[in-house]
């Protein structure tokens, strides 16, 4: 199959949805000629014009309001917030307005938008351009939260998100933008709320999100050489969460390592651990549920410090090996 980068897969999803449905449009800072800070929307303004690829002033709350109001009145906007850190500036509209309008109005309105935003560290951008704030949104009923880890998933999940009738927070990872993988040319959807087993294994389950899926797969490859067979599962959407495949996997392996980049305390790993602990998989556990996550601290500028702030392949290998060999 043809290969595309993660960024190209997202762009193709946007292009195909804009071709299919004239209600779909893009709005954000520098999304036009500039192509977005990471080049994801490059070329789309030439194809669809400034009326459907709308550059905005630096007004994150305004962008969130614009997509909320447009969605409320029949459009299907795709907003972009340049860095996930800046969603903090848009929170009022996202949390108090977009997420709650349908419920507050007794189910008599809908707000079908997608807000795309890149998260994650590894670019040397330090503490205000590197955060992973997904769990802030997971905690808000009315929002859906999507975190693709591959180009294939990025395209299918984005198309599904655009066609969804709810506000969807679509979290990309900066280090994944250049990662390549097979992507079909035709439009396709991956239903929100479907986890996927990315690698099968019998000894240990790793549940990972976003870039940690890639790192976990690398770790699994190394561990296979040591005779440890790791199963890697990607929830793909944090909300709604597809619980069954996670529970089934843990029942099979009896051991689970949860890996994400966001700070450990209050992170999504706590939710995943609780889902497993509350399920029938509890009785099958042969070891404690282990979380490997970002340190509870801001991201550093210094390369070495930055690197050691969030889980890397060798950390995952170590944690998984310890867990598989009963050292935890």
């Amino acid at each position: 199959m043809r290969e595309l980068s993660y960024a190209e897969a997202i762009r193709e999803a946007l292009r195909q949805e804009m071709q299919r449905d004239e209600r779909v449009f893009i709005i954000g800072e520098d999304v036009g000629v500039y192509g977005g800070a990471f080049g994801v929307t490059l070329g789309l303004v030439e194809e669809f014009g400034e009326e459907r690829v709308i550059d905005t002033p630096i007004s994150e709350l305004g962008i969130a309001g614009a997509i909320t109001g447009a969605a409320l009145t029949g459009m299907r906007p795709v907003g972009e917030i340049m860095f996930m850190d800046f969603t903090t500036l848009a929170m009022e509209q996202l949390v108090n307005q977009a997420a709650k309008i349908r419920f507050m109005f007794g189910g008599k309105a809908k707000v079908p938008f997608v807000l795309r935003t890149p998260a994650g560290s590894g670019t040397g951008a330090a503490a205000q351009h590197s955060q992973s704030l997904e769990n802030w949104f997971v905690h808000v009923p009315g929002l859906k939260v999507v975190m693709p880890s591959t180009p294939y998933d990025a395209k299918g999940l984005l198309i599904a998100s655009i066609r969804d009738d709810n506000p969807v927070i679509f979290i990309e990872h900066k280090l994944l933008y250049k990662v390549k993988g097979p992507v079909p040319e035709e439009p396709y959807t991956i239903p929100l709320g479907t986890a996927e087993v990315k690698r099968e294994g019998r000894d240990l389950t790793i549940i990972a999100t976003s870039i940690m899926v890639q790192r976990s797969l690398e770790a699994a490859q190394q561990l296979a050489e040591e005779g440890i067979e790791v199963e890697v599962i990607d929830p793909r959407t944090l909300k709604p969460l597809d619980k069954e495949p996670l529970i089934r996997s843990v029942m099979k392996t009896g051991r689970v390592l949860i890996v994400h980049e966001a700070c450990k305390t209050g992170g999504y790993g706590g939710e995943l651990a609780a889902v497993i602990a509350e399920s029938e998989a509890f009785d099958y556990l042969d070891a404690p549920i282990i979380r490997l996550a970002g340190r509870d601290m801001p991201i550093s500028y210094n390369r070495t410090l930055e690197y050691h702030t969030v889980p890397q392949v060798e950390n995952i290998v170590q944690a998984a090996r310890d867990l598989a060999r009963g050292r935890m």
């Binding site: 109001g69 447009a70 969605a71 029949g74």
Partner: peptide, 11 residues
């Protein structure tokens, strides 16, 4: 107020 921008844009 920000929602009005979106509604205006949509119209």
């Amino acid at each position: 107020i920000p929602i009005a921008v979106g509604v205006g844009l949509s119209l």
